[in-house]
Simulated scan of single mutants.
Amino acid sequence: MSQLNTQSNFNVPDAFYERLISAHRDLTTNESNAMNAALVLLLSNHIGDLNVISQALDEARRSVMAEA
Rank of each mutant, 00 (worst) to 15 (best):
3 Q>W: 08
3 Q>P: 02
3 Q>D: 10
6 T>A: 03
7 Q>I: 05
7 Q>E: 14
7 Q>D: 11
8 S>A: 04
8 S>M: 00
9 N>K: 07
9 N>G: 04
10 F>V: 00
11 N>K: 09
11 N>D: 08
11 N>R: 02
12 V>R: 04
13 P>A: 02
15 A>Y: 04
17 Y>H: 03
18 E>C: 06
19 R>T: 08
20 L>A: 13
22 S>E: 11
22 S>V: 01
22 S>H: 11
23 A>N: 09
23 A>F: 05
26 D>P: 01
27 L>R: 09
28 T>M: 07
28 T>S: 15
28 T>N: 08
28 T>A: 11
28 T>R: 08
29 T>A: 11
29 T>G: 05
30 N>A: 14
30 N>M: 10
30 N>H: 10
31 E>W: 00
32 S>V: 02
34 A>I: 07
35 M>Y: 12
37 A>R: 14
38 A>E: 12
39 L>V: 06
40 V>H: 04
41 L>A: 15
42 L>A: 13
42 L>K: 12
46 H>R: 14
47 I>Y: 00
47 I>P: 01
49 D>P: 04
49 D>F: 03
50 L>Y: 07
50 L>S: 14
51 N>P: 02
51 N>S: 13
51 N>Q: 13
52 V>G: 02
52 V>Y: 01
53 I>K: 00
53 I>Q: 02
53 I>A: 04
53 I>V: 15
54 S>E: 12
55 Q>E: 15
55 Q>G: 07
57 L>I: 14
57 L>R: 14
57 L>T: 09
58 D>K: 12
58 D>V: 10
59 E>Y: 11
60 A>G: 14
60 A>S: 15
61 R>V: 13
61 R>H: 14
61 R>S: 12
62 R>V: 04
62 R>K: 15
64 V>H: 07
